[in-house]
Nucleic acid binder design. Structure first.
Lengths: 204, 204, 204, 204
DNA sequence: CATGAATGAGTGTTCATTCAT
DNA sequence: AATGAATGAACACTCATTCAT
């Protein structure tokens, strides 16, 4: 029988995650200190270790909370739309939009987590798989519906699209340059759909 | 009149860079210690600071040496080929090949440098610009030659291609999975050239 | 609600200051190491940094504790006495006595602090000002009472007296020679009061 | 038979001392580096060790050169004058003047040497003894001539005077405040000669 | 349950000095 | 004689984590 109520406990956890989100976001993982997070959450240092096993775990939980939100939104997004083109555009637009809406958290993910050795096998990686599988599914559906070339590899296409978008968004995420979501989304979608080569060239 | 010959001096520098390459590669930047690098280079700790201004500088110099090599190779590669397709394939193939040939250094670059705050304005960034400009130039040439759609944005295309390749290569670079250079190069090149959508779809 | 009692906390601080006093006193500031101070205080290195912001701060706090004691004693001393002569003698005697009673701390102050660039504006300097102002006030009172020449500059006189005493005490403080407090106090006081020149000389 | 001429050797030594004087003067002993001194003297690091046994020795030689100059000047000064008063004033004036003329070297001496453990028994201390003995001799002469009270202790008087002057000059030497040599010299001399107490007081 | 005092491992960097060339 | 490359010891400070209170 817990001495504090489940609600209060959850409130504590949420407060810590919220504080950690802003401190990690503002300073990065290394430069952030548990003491500062505790202070901001109005909690003692030690309490953090009751709910999180260590600093790294706290980072992951911050990003999990974020990723869950983002995965849900993408999955919902994917339910809409009729044609392949429009649905692809919607996914690309939303993915790009995430970088703008949550720049700090995206930077945290790209620079501190995906690149780290403990990423493999983590909950975050599983969330990432769910996230990207939305696009894989769309492509498979596109093939089935005859909208996408039957010999396209869904996984390859998905990697090309996400890789492209992240590469394009990174300078912005890293605090350098602007990012026009709509324009970029359309350009990327068109490129992926139609390719860059002139048909005449291929015939020649 | 230097007390040691220029050759010996260069030998020292090379030994340090080589040692640093392997230690940084094996442990990552943070976990690597100057003392271990010095030991491996059979040099005193202090000597490293005669040739490199600090640990960070040493990391950059390791990657600069690598990047210079890679840039030169890509520029040479780009000089060959006749058609746009064949030249694009060559560039893609080589870029992918770099990840296989120098996995550790690529990981170092992707995980410790490109993501870091001191990347902007660094010599490495300039080398990176030279590197990617090879592709930009090819696309511009392709447009001029009527091989590439005139409304293609060379910069966007370049970002999509490099982003895609890095995204695809990352799991391998990070020590997970395989990477079939030839197969991947062809698949990516085809996708970029021809897109994924069936022409009939666009007409509908 | 602190985890340890205020007494125990103060005990820790006192132990650190005491340990620092003896280590700084024995080896001087530079040669003293935080590790040794911590060991002697039976405390971890890190704890010192909870109570003191850095090594320099620790030195200052050691001397502040000392100086506060000494200032209070001098101010109390200054309250006694009737004639100017007797009160001046008491101050001179006490100042000289401090060098004997706390040789190590005096040496620390003279050789590591007063001479340092961070002395200006420090708490120690303020304590020093309070300390010396006791003498300035006495001289002003002496002038007001007609015991001291009306054209004597209190500040100059004060500087001459403290400068003289410190100069005389230094060899002793630095571990060389003896210091007879009473004899010296009387000699200095007489010299300051009566000067060294024979009246007949001045008339001639 | 030396491979270089004695003149050239002396030239080297002088150049090193001159360079050391300015570097030590500008940065203090600790912050000065042998490398910088060597660079400024247009000499190799190693050569310094041919003429000076170590960094500390170099500091002492810098100050010896300075002190020899200053001692000679004071001894010459002391030869002039007729009355005790005028000769005392001249010595006090010159001593104060040294702080103004060679502020950096005086600071070096007061803050880095006189306070150090290796001062005792050094050549510098011997020069200092010669320097102050000029004043002792004057006082003894004053006593012999009936100008100074016969019971005045020459050594005590000398210490009071030098202590006072150094105490007064220190803030200026340390880069804080001004120093009016003439005014201060007169005030100090008068105080020492005549004392501060009113004769009437002593009779009462 | 909560606190926050206490721990202590871990390391980049400088520079006086030496000695092979 | 002169050089300057090479050495290597020495240390304050931080902060994630623990556990006595």
């Amino acid at each position: 029988m817990p001495v504090i109520s489940a609600e209060r406990m959850q409130g504590r956890i949420d407060a810590i995650i919220e504080a950690a989100t802003s401190v990690f976001g503002a300073k990065g993982y290394e430069a952030a200190s548990i003491a500062e997070i505790a202070r901001r959450a109005e909690v003692s240092d030690g309490l953090i270790y009751r709910y999180f096993s260590n600093k790294r775990d706290l980072l992951y939980r911050v990003l999990e909370a974020f990723y869950e939100r983002v995965v849900a939104a993408l999955e919902k997004e994917a339910a809409n739309g009729t044609t392949f083109d429009s649905r692809l555009l919607a996914i690309v637009r939303r993915h790009l939009g995430n970088f703008v809406a949550d720049r700090e958290l995206c930077r945290l993910f790209l620079s501190e987590v995906r690149v780290a050795s403990d990423y493999k096998g983590s909950t975050i990686q599983n969330l990432n798989r769910r996230y990207v599988s939305v696009l894989t599914a769309l492509i498979e559906a596109g093939i089935a519906a005859g909208e996408v070339k039957p010999d396209a590899s869904p996984k390859l296409v998905r990697n090309v699209i996400f890789g492209a978008i992240e590469h394009i968004a990174w300078p912005y995420v890293n605090g350098d340059g602007k990012l026009d979501v709509e324009e970029t989304a359309i350009a990327v979608t068109n490129l992926i759909c139609g390719g860059i080569c002139l048909p005449s060239q291929n015939k020649a």
